[in-house]
Design a protein around this nucleic acid. Sequence first.
DNA 1: AATGAATGAGGTTTCATTCAT
DNA 2: GATGAATGAAACCTCATTCAT
Lengths: 216, 216, 216, 216
Amino acid sequence: MSTVAVKKTAARTAQGRADKRRHILEAAVEVFANAGFHRSRVSDVARAANVADGTIYLYFKSKDEILLSIFEEAMAEMIEAVEVKLAPLDDPFEKLRTFTAFHMTRVERHRSVAKVLQVELRLSHTFMREYKPTKLKEYLDIVGRIVEEGQARGLMRLEANPTIVRRALFGALDEIAMQWILTPAARYGLLESANQIADIFASGLRSGSAEASANP
Amino acid sequence: MSTVAVKKTAARTAQGRADKRRHILEAAVEVFANAGFHRSRVSDVARAANVADGTIYLYFKSKDEILLSIFEEAMAEMIEAVEVKLAPLDDPFEKLRTFTAFHMTRVERHRSVAKVLQVELRLSHTFMREYKPTKLKEYLDIVGRIVEEGQARGLMRLEANPTIVRRALFGALDEIAMQWILTPAARYGLLESANQIADIFASGLRSGSAEASANP
Amino acid sequence: MSTVAVKKTAARTAQGRADKRRHILEAAVEVFANAGFHRSRVSDVARAANVADGTIYLYFKSKDEILLSIFEEAMAEMIEAVEVKLAPLDDPFEKLRTFTAFHMTRVERHRSVAKVLQVELRLSHTFMREYKPTKLKEYLDIVGRIVEEGQARGLMRLEANPTIVRRALFGALDEIAMQWILTPAARYGLLESANQIADIFASGLRSGSAEASANP
Amino acid sequence: MSTVAVKKTAARTAQGRADKRRHILEAAVEVFANAGFHRSRVSDVARAANVADGTIYLYFKSKDEILLSIFEEAMAEMIEAVEVKLAPLDDPFEKLRTFTAFHMTRVERHRSVAKVLQVELRLSHTFMREYKPTKLKEYLDIVGRIVEEGQARGLMRLEANPTIVRRALFGALDEIAMQWILTPAARYGLLESANQIADIFASGLRSGSAEASANP
DNA sequence: AATGAATGAGGTTTCATTCAT
DNA sequence: GATGAATGAAACCTCATTCAT
């Protein structure tokens, strides 16, 4: 039984279908990360995945949907993975630090995926305009819940708005990650940045911090 | 000599040329903010500016250059304006708060410009890939210098890397601004967000904060 | 042996094969009549016939051949049926009237088939350009022979060219049938049209009519 | 002043624009008549008209619109031309004969246009399904009015329905014209066919014809 | 300087057909 | 015989940019 023969019929089973889908997705990540989503043609993805152009459309409705799937599936994995890391922890500050470290390590280890998520995704009109990023909100919610828990336990300032904090923290991580991705020669490690950001947000959220009173 | 005649020949003077350029730029901001950069055609900008398509190219090398010019000139204005606001201040923490408030107020007051800068600019490949955003770095440098000054005066923790901090602060502001721009019904004022972010970063940077020791 | 098993192997007999072929053809008529030949996909026909896409190609060489088969077989049936109706008749004029009435009644009763024949067939390039419509000629020949017989018996004007007359009659019927098919709310019955056309052609062909002398 | 220079700016005047439009239309007629509408690419038309692909779209919204324009404009011309020919005539039968002769002569003289109108037009989905052929109805109306006039003057049988007659006559002419166009070696002249059809319809419509009484 | 008609490159997606099982 | 996953060719239209006037 040749490898080709296996490939040909693999998709007849549900598992085979899922495998091929993932295979195409992985090829797409590399192609998009290299050339950019807009500059990549569907035929480039097809060639990289060793399938015909039309085959792509048996697994994805459109070129945009490939990008969206990359996003959805990467986010789902991240959500699951970070929850596992956070589960054994108790201290909200430690959770915050673990979250930022996780995020940046992830970016560092999966540079191609991160590149697509951070840079290319934003170039897609569909994503920016029509798509509701449920998965992203879910990811941000993790931070929001950490803050809420910290406040409930009297460890974090009640003046901090969890909705704002989670966006701000994500924005800070995201901006630095994007810089690191776009700059071929990154000058500092992402983990250091993660820790600096965790420090700032931890201090900023800790009860007893005097800044709040400075508000007009 | 009629008004029309004057208008027709206005560009013969350097001032006239600059005026027309600005006129086109202002039209472009509205067009891009409305329909998005990609969806806007050069002829749309031309119509909005009441000039012929070809005339655009007497003032800008390409469609991308229009976008870049909007960015450059908006940033230049912002840099000048925020420097004026910061000049009379002494306390670095107050400067930080003034900077965040300035940034968000600016976004709120110039929604079209902000929309183009935050949303549309990212959709331009040229910008993300080839362009070196000197003006953005200059703007960020203002934050960097505030931090360096705070450190030099012993008010801010020396462990904080100004390069990271300025990026992180900008990322936090940017993410929240983008959310506000994209969400038709924003639930909270931008100024409140600005102050929350300022609080967090101020506490996080203040000397004596214990977080740094938590680093592994 | 289960029913399914019988069905599965039915095609092993010549009759079984013919039945399945007809089954696919009938499904195709409905699909094409509904959506149009061009808009119908082979997979639509397959689904309607409850067979796999590939199975279609065990019975037909191409999508075009399905259309052609519908035409050929519908025409064959019509030829046979009209011959039966004409056989007992003697008067050529009565035959003419019977023919037109038969044609229009057929269109009315088999609207889907007629729709495919009249509208969709014309949309097929293959048909218009490469295909020689033998069956159509055979059908028209029936009219031609009626005229020739009428002329031989001295009942119809010799000046009338049977080749032209048969085409003209068919064109008249066809145009009105197409109108009826395309217009959802037809205002007059097809039988009335059939009779009017029969009247005109009968008078026009009857010996003693003065028009021929008017020719320059 | 070179020819090219003239060409370049010709379209700036309304007349120049109309000329270029007609130029493209004439090129399209030849291309479509040769290869068929579906088989012709827009770039084929562009090459034949000596313009760039995009230029086509300055004058026509779509490929379909080119076909529709050919139809509309050819019909408009025909309507005008046949009205001129009919105007001096009084006898409705003579008008009928003149109409059929005109139609067929037109087909014979403008074979390419006729080919597009008769064969290719029907292959266009847009035309068959969405487009309302106002101009065709107008052309048919000419025949309808001749019959009505004949009936009003007591020359033609009142039993004949002008709506049916005009369709039937057009169908007869159309079918024979199509045959002539599709058959490379036509065996008989179109004018003879025109006269035969005119004879049949004239006799069929003339008052005193006995056929009507044969209706059930 | 201003105009605006003309240019022409570029890529997604569909679907008839094949063929290994 | 039946299946259905895989194939891959094929073309319309848009719009940034140019350049003759």
